[in-house]
Design a binder for these strands. Sequence first.
DNA 1: GGCAAATGAATTGTCAGACAATTAAGAGGC
DNA 2: GCCTCTTAATTGTCTGACAATTCATTTGCC
Lengths: 243, 243
Amino acid sequence: MKTDLDDNQDLSKQIAEAIRDAIINGSLLVDQRLPSEAELCDKFGVGRSTVREALKRLAAQNLIRTQRGASGGAFVNRMSFEEAYGQQITTSTLLLSMNQVDFETACEARYALERACAPLSAQRRTADHLATMRAEIHRQTQPGLTDEAFCASDVAFHRALVDGAGNPVLSYQLAGAVEAMQPLMNMITYTQRDRDRIVEFHTQLADAIEGQDGPTAEASLGQLAEYTVELGRSRLTQSKDRR
Amino acid sequence: MKTDLDDNQDLSKQIAEAIRDAIINGSLLVDQRLPSEAELCDKFGVGRSTVREALKRLAAQNLIRTQRGASGGAFVNRMSFEEAYGQQITTSTLLLSMNQVDFETACEARYALERACAPLSAQRRTADHLATMRAEIHRQTQPGLTDEAFCASDVAFHRALVDGAGNPVLSYQLAGAVEAMQPLMNMITYTQRDRDRIVEFHTQLADAIEGQDGPTAEASLGQLAEYTVELGRSRLTQSKDRR
DNA sequence: GGCAAATGAATTGTCAGACAATTAAGAGGC
DNA sequence: GCCTCTTAATTGTCTGACAATTCATTTGCC
């Protein structure tokens, strides 16, 4: 591990990076214990607060976990899919909201990726995934649903579709694309007609997935994508004009 | 912002989460200055080191940046695509390496996503993207190239393909899928025959992209995906057997 | 001998106080 | 007006202390 630090730089940042690199390149293995804080102080020649700040940086990225007590310490953390999901969603959400990414671009990305899952999902979906999709479709037809709840259900529906592909890496990669869209979709006000149309697409899609008909599923998604972009275009430009 | 903390929990973690939530839900806007460390100490009723550890956690996620001096402080950071790329790649790489994700699963996810980009890239690629693709293909034919360099060039090629779609959100989402595969691919030893075959697919692909022929590009990617999986299957099982 | 309780040691979590480094703004002199 | 000096605010780092937690060892009792 690199232990010579450039002064007049942020020490805790450099230490965190040195340890992170050691984890990535395999010098530190999963569940291996890092040196104690005191030992790290010696190794890097810095005070304890500096070491601690470095460790907190790593903990924030789920790279390590810490445990108190004798035989405690910092351990290299096995990055779980769940943790990775969370990070991905946070990052994606902020990326979209902070960079004035327009609805159309985000929507295109999301549906392009989701289309890639459709054939796999059609092939491998279980009864569970189908049940979730049907349940969400049903929820979407309930009267009195707020726009937020409708969007949340939409996300859950698509999530089930993606998970149906049975590839955890794919599910992880799409977590950001699907979930980060929700805040953008929440800005749209849906008429009953819009909802009916969307539910129609969802039903078509669920039918295709159930029938293991990949091409049709992909086509339905394509139509839905087009409709959603259209919807966003008309609604968001309207609300912009009102300003 | 939530300021009441649960004792007997990690205080710095709770504080970091409270501030993170404030950023996500919009209470804290981009470039807005956070209260100074001293003020945060008062607000949360904790010592300065605790507050500092919380801030370092946020800095590690690129949520804030800090500046010294009068009128310095911590500021909400605009998450840049570049930063998001980096995080995504780190997370994806560790996720794959730490969870014994098999080559086939990762490969499937990667090519599924990449296929989604192909039609868009065929439609919108610029001369720049094409030039990069051609250059990387040329590099891949150079004799004496190490397996690592070959894989790196492969990644660069596919990166150009993805960027050709002209959708930054898509490029971001695929950064992890494409780059995190490299360590896995590095474990494969390529014969000259393998390389020739891959270059063939790459050329086919580049031709299709140049000719704005989306379907052919997608098909080429499909073949390449199949071949890569095949390659991984034979090579990795062999190396496993030798153990 | 065996078991429960007390003790001690190692380690992280938190706090307080100090000083260094950096930066912006203002004061003063020319 | 412009330069220099001072001052104040703020983060970065260090030190020392104590609390909380956990494990291993020892002690004491039966």
